[in-house]
Write a protein that binds this DNA or RNA. Structure first.
Length: 876
RNA sequence: GCGGACGUGGCGAAACUGGUAGACGCAAGGGACUUAAAAUCCCUCGGCCUUAGGCUAUACGGGUUCGAUCCCCGUCGUCCGCACCA
């Protein structure tokens, strides 16, 4: 009777070979069946996969295998997001070439993924750093350029004055360069931009059509695009220092209703007016410089203390020429948004209020809540930002904020200064154009040539690819393309004179904005085969981290539109269904404090629980280690777990099953060693029960039992099938897992009886049906175990190529239901009654219950609430 | 700072988004089998009260409702994004 334990080290490679041999996961573009495209966000080849990858790809693989079983022609490809900074950092730190570092990483990560037994079409694999890929990206760039979707403009970068290099935001720590420690400066460079703002309105409107996206992602994108309806208002300059010659300042506001609450104007440090004033005033110039030293990150800017300086300029209030207001330069006003100038209404905006208190500017309440008292309404430390009734606003008093908006707009639109209306209604977007220039080597070269005579000349398509030179050095900071002895020198394609290549490369977000399209025909000479791309796209189910909710997804949505405009695809929205998985997080461990703080990996640590307190000890040294907060697994904090260890000891199926089972997939999962054992026990238990009964099951027909004792087996099996189907459709893997546990628990005793030869024919047939269904249900999550069990019970072919079973409606339906009975909202009894019993029948049955009789104590109930199929509540 | 989420036993969670709170798993405890261990099987398991049973409990404080983990208002805590990390 005793069967051997299931040995994944033997079974898993065996089945992987079998799948490969039969080309089970190769996808044919000409297959006539309905298509289904499932894609997980491709990984950055950092060198090792981590548990986040395992979770991500396990989820995608369940969807792929499930959809395949449902009869779809499934596309499930994989590739590598291979350009980016870490390769250059490795080159600087260890002297490895970015290309060899990257390709080695890809090789080892691919080997790790292979071991997971994912149903991927590896024939379509590519890395974005493959010349074949970035050549087509350059082709797209040229098409976009021709179409007017790309342009150059001045834009700021973080400049490290010691290393003479451009820094990424993450390389700026507290305003200093991460390596040099020098105070970062902002520098203006001419850079390349994609005109994503051409599509602002469409990108916003189309969010409504993405009904298979999480609402929170749509909301985040909506806020990011940030459409607002407001007014640009021109303010006449009444007096100014000698260094300025402007006559007016234009501000953008979404709250013209609060105009009578204005107490100052604030402009950005880069506003032309600020520059003029600064040229004649050292103190203001110093303040503007200080603003520029903050780096370019918005988060850094806005968390900084709000500061300003009076420019000496005075402007006239648009609705009262005798009222003059001061103009400040303020560090929280952005040149990129609106007009780079605002008017401050302290009573209606918290930031303005803080600013006003700091610089002793007047605070006049102009909006109060509807039921407020105008005489006593004041503003303390908190601004009133809501809607309400206008006060202290002359001709607007008593109006609603909305009415006041309209009235101010109408008044100022009809008023003219210098022959032009003083105000204009304006729709504004927060979204900015996408700057793609990077002053770095390891990225896709921007295919243009700078000629002194012809200006900016696109590289002719027949000259593509513009290949990255291999012979580069990283001994110095800065862009190796810039200092390469020959690479940048090239003849102008137009006049053949000496010219220079563009040395900027593209943002890696460009690479990831169309890889899903390339997967549909990665062998094409052109970027895509438009017919094939439009057949496969949109991606039916895209799965990835919530951290990409805005940028990657928005850029991809733009890129698809741009590719449509240039004839490469025939659709706007690349991702029909989106699922954002939670991250894998882990405790952090460290020793030392402050700058001496050193992070320790979980592998180096032993955790013990002593009297309810968890204590971490360094395995080698025996030193006590501080247990820190739970954070996203990252290299810098070293709180990573190596999936190889898990797969090595338990097998891929256990690892896959575990990451799917513990937490809801859209929530963060805290990795813990405990629990893997449980998943593994389930694998062994399922194997043992099935393989022991297999000899008896092999001979039997699979037939659900409609009557008799075996009916119960068939009922729970078919109910589980129905539920698991629904769970897989919703990607609720953790619930599917729970139901499978329940089913196996229920089948344990029948299986044991079958194995012992103590079951009648009907039971054996019902059990065979149950086991067949069970194997199909576990196959998407644990494909190797499923194949092994399938073979054991004498199944035909591969489970990976079998169709999903259908549940039997009869067995799923319930004739009787048990209703909970509440008295005054508290559960006091149960009532079992026919499923189709009407209200009256339910009511009288309830009143007959002992518990209800006791509670009523002879009186009649106040009310009986019967929620059909759900609950009964008796109000006494 | 702004935007978005999340918070339920010792732990991961479930509850068909207004209808029995804690399914299922982990950990823990007890028992069976065994010379012994592992594996396996059975039982207990939010808290309080003396059992039948009752009271209490979904971060905290209010509200709406016959009924709230779910809806509304406020507070606290944690996480993600903020445009050059990917």
């Amino acid at each position: 009777m005793a069967t051997e334990r299931y040995n994944p080290r033997d079974a898993e490679p065996r089945w992987q070979q079998e799948w490969d041999k039969n080309n089970v996961y190769l996808t044919d573009n000409d297959d006539p069946r309905e298509k289904y495209y499932v894609l997980e966000m491709f990984p950055y080849p950092s060198g090792r996969i981590h548990m986040g990858h395992v979770r991500n790809y396990a989820m995608g693989d369940v969807v792929a295998r499930y959809k395949r079983a449902r009869g779809y022609n499934v596309l499930h490809p994989m590739g590598w997001d291979a350009f980016g900074m870490p390769a250059e950092n490795a080159a600087m730190e260890r002297g490895v070439h970015p290309a060899s570092w990257t390709y080695q990483n890809i090789a080892s990560m691919k080997a790790q993924l292979k071991v997971m037994g994912l149903s991927l079409d590896w024939s379509r694999e590519f890395a974005t750093c493959d010349v074949e890929y970035y050549q087509r990206q350059q082709y797209l760039f040229l098409d976009f350029l021709e179409k007017g979707l790309v342009y150059r403009k001045q834009s700021k970068v973080n400049w490290d004055p010691v290393d003479h290099t451009v820094l990424a935001n993450e390389q700026v720590i507290d305003g200093r360069g991460w390596r040099s420690g020098a105070l970062v400066e902002q520098r203006e460079l001419t850079q390349w931009f994609f005109r994503i703002t051409d599509f602002s309105q469409d990108l916003l409107d189309s969010l409504d059509t993405l009904d298979q996206w999480p609402e929170k992602v749509r909301l985040m994108q909506r806020n990011w695009i940030g459409r607002s309806e407001g007014l640009t208002i021109r303010w006449e300059i009444a007096g100014a220092p000698a260094s300025t010659d402007e006559k007016e300042v234009t501000v953008y506001t979404t709250r013209p209703d609060t105009l009578f609450g204005a107490s100052f104007l604030a402009i950005a440090a880069d506003h032309p007016l600020a520059r003029q004033v600064a040229s004649g005033n050292a103190e203001i110039a110093e303040f503007c410089d200080e603003c520029r030293r903050a780096g370019t990150s918005l988060a850094a800017l806005e968390t900084a203390e709000k500061k300003g300086i009076d420019t000496g300029i005075r402007v006239r209030h648009p609705l009262d020429p005798s009222w003059e207001l001061p103009v400040y330069v303020a560090n929280f006003v952005l040149m990129d948004y609106g007009t780079g100038a605002i008017f401050g209404c302290p009573s209606g905006d918290q930031r303005d209020l803080d600013f006003a208190r700091k610089y002793n500017l007047p605070v006049v309440p102009v909006v109060m809540p509807k039921d407020g008292d105008a005489a006593s309404f004041t503003i303390g430390d908190e601004a009133y930002v809501g809607d309400g009734v206008m006060i202290n606003s002359r001709f607007l008093d008593g109006l609603s904020t909305e009415e006041a908006f309209g009235k101010v707009a109408a008044t100022l639109e009809s008023k003219e200064i210098g022959g032009l209306p003083q105000a204009e209604r304006k729709v504004n977007f927060r979204l900015r154009d996408w700057g793609i220039s990077r002053q770095r080597y390891w990225g896709c070269p921007i295919p243009v040539i700078h000629c002194d005579d012809c200006g900016v000349v696109p590289v002719p398509k027949q000259d593509l690819p513009v290949k990255l030179p291999d012979d580069v050095t990283f001994d110095k900071p800065g862009n190796p393309l810039d200092r390469h002895p020959t690479w940048r020198h090239v003849a102008c394609p137009q006049c053949a004179k000496d010219a220079r290549r563009e040395t900027d490369t593209m943002d890696t977000f460009v690479d990831s904005s169309w890889y899903f399209t390339r997967f549909t025909a990665p062998w094409e000479d052109k970027p895509t085969d438009p017919k094939v791309a439009s057949h496969w796209l949109p991606v039916d189910q895209y799965i990835g981290g919530i951290e990409h909710a805005i940028l990657h997804l928005l850029y991809s949505r733009f890129f698809t539109r741009a590719m449509k405009a240039t004839g490469h695809v025939a659709l706007d929205e690349p991702f029909k269904g989106l699922f954002t998985q939670g991250m894998v997080v882990h405790e952090t461990y460290s020793r030392g404090e402050g700058a001496q703080r050193e992070w320790i990996t979980p592998a180096e640590i032993r955790i013990e629980e002593i009297e309810g307190t968890r204590i971490a000890t360094h395995v080698e040294t025996g030193e006590k280690i501080k247990i820190g907060s739970i954070e996203k697994m990252s290299k810098s904090k070293k709180n990573v777990v190596d999936p190889d260890d898990i797969i090595g000891s338990y097998g891929a199926d256990t690892a896959r099953f575990f990451v799917l089972s513990d937490s809801p997939p859209d929530r963060d999962v805290i990795w813990s060693e405990a629990g893997v054992e449980g998943s593994h026990r389930f694998v062994q238990r399922a194997w043992r029960l099935i393989s022991e009964a297999a000899p008896a099951l092999k001979q039997a027909d699979a037939r659900p039992a409609k009557t008799g004792a075996a009916r119960e087996i068939s009922q729970i099996t078919h109910k589980t099938l129905k539920a698991v189907e629904a769970d897989y459709e919703k990607l609720a893997f953790n619930k599917a897992v729970a139901r499978l546990y329940e089913l196996v628990n229920a089948l344990a005793s029948p299986l044991t009886q079958v194995a012992a030869g103590r079951a009648d024919d009907d039971t054996v047939s019902a059990v065979k049906d149950a086991v067949t269904i069970l194997i199909h249900m576990i196959a998407p999550m644990m494909p190797h175990l499923a194949e092994e069990c399938w073979r054991e019970i004498g199944g035909n072919g591969l489970i990976a190529q079998s169709l999903w079973p259908a549940y039997d409606e009869d067995l799923v339906a319930e004739n009787e239901i048990t209703l909970p009975v509440q008295i005054n909202g508290k559960k006091r009894a149960d009532l079992t009654i026919a499923r189709d019993a009407d209200q009256i029948a339910v009511q009288s049955a309830v009143l007959a219950l002992e518990a209800v009789q006791a509670a009523l104590n002879g009186q009649s109930p106040k009310k009986i609430i019967v929620v059909p199929q759900r609950i009964v509540n008796v109000v006494v």
